[in-house]
Design a binder for these strands. Structure first.
Lengths: 199, 199
DNA sequence: TGAAGGTGTGAATCATGATTCACTTGTTGG
DNA sequence: CCAACAAGTGAATCATGATTCACACCTTCA
């Protein structure tokens, strides 16, 4: 033989794949999953459509990977806020703020992650994501209940409702393009009241 | 001339159109807007695809009309609950319950109406719908604030958040297929706490 | 009854976007 | 430099579903 994959090539491949994912996410970020087409990804990355298939078995895989990447970033950010110092109320407030700020920064992306994607393959990933998210909030709510800071309640339902409340209040009225401090403050208060925290 | 549309014909046409809409809604009800194809509507109604086009200029019009019909029914139901006797808190609780029961009865439909439909033409209608819904809740929240029953707050944001909370807590965990009384109770409490009503 | 003016039909055509593949262009190591 | 083996390419092909349209079949009424 006379060919063997060298380190340089391996690096290039990684870079290429990463570039494709980056381009793909940019598309989702500005147009949701509906804007994610192989053609657009190839064009945006400056390669041929066939190349995309060298790195992903099909659209499903690409879409799922984009979803998972974006998702884990969001979840991490919120998780960090939830694990911050301070009691459950402070953590919940911080998490709401993080969620709000990030959603404002990339509304289309947030929407694409939370709302139902067209692709059934992504659906599985999405379900997992929502559960993770909800579970995260459920933990704080639960600890708040235990510590007596929050009212007794169904932590699971409250967690889901909190996620929904944040999503809707931020993404629902698509008219407001700016990251309004008043909106964030109002959202924080809503969340705290909702779990029965003393304000 | 020798032809003029008679009353009988007019009646038939109305019935035909109504039947098509009925079939179309049934499809959405069980598979979301993604399942709404002209082919399926024609087949379900027992007519040819061409016939569908005699009654609707295109898919957009059909989808929009289905959306508007279902929507106005939902809005009416909630509006009625909100306008019931009793104070803001009672009305809000009643509305949440109506919303919950209806969403449980037709989860896919509720999801299709609330979540982003694929079709951009329906989007306009959807935006209108969400606004109507939110406005409805905003009114009660506002009156609750005025009467002192609810805490001072941004009625607009709270209204949107309430809608989101209800939607997510009911549609999010798609695992629970039954209309659980506990869930409804928990949701009602969540909503009341969220607006700062004394429980 | 027959001409006028519908309505019903569904195969044919378009449009969009995913996927393939024969081929071109690197890279590597002898 | 050459043979071996990938990666890159994009026109061609498929798949799905909307839309058209020439034609068949009713209704009406002089």
């Amino acid at each position: 033989m006379a060919y063997r994959e060298t380190d340089l090539v391996r690096q290039r491949k990684v870079a290429q794949k990463s570039g494709l994912l980056h381009t793909a996410e940019a598309l989702v970020r500005e147009g949701g999953f509906g804007a994610l087409t192989i053609q657009a990804v190839a064009e945006g990355a400056g390669v041929g459509v066939g190349t995309v298939y060298r790195y992903f078995s099909g659209k499903d895989e690409l879409a799922t990977e984009v979803f998972k990447r974006a998702t884990s970033r969001e979840v991490s950010a919120v998780r960090e806020a939830l694990n911050g110092s301070g009691g459950p109320a402070a953590c919940l407030a911080a998490a709401a703020e993080v969620f709000a700020v990030r959603a404002f920064a990339a509304p289309k992306l947030a929407w694409a992650l939370i709302a139902e994607p067209v692709d059934p393959a992504v659906d599985i990933a999405r379900l997992q994501y929502r559960k993770t998210y909800t579970a995260l909030f459920e933990t704080v709510v639960q600890s708040g209940i235990v510590s007596g800071e929050f009212a007794p309640q169904s932590a699971a339902l409250s967690a889901a409702a909190l996620v929904g409340a944040m999503a809707e209040s931020l993404l629902g009225p698509l008219d407001s393009p700016a990251c309004d401090a008043d909106t964030i403050a109002a959202l924080r208060l809503f969340c705290l009241r909702a779990v029965g925290a003393r304000c």
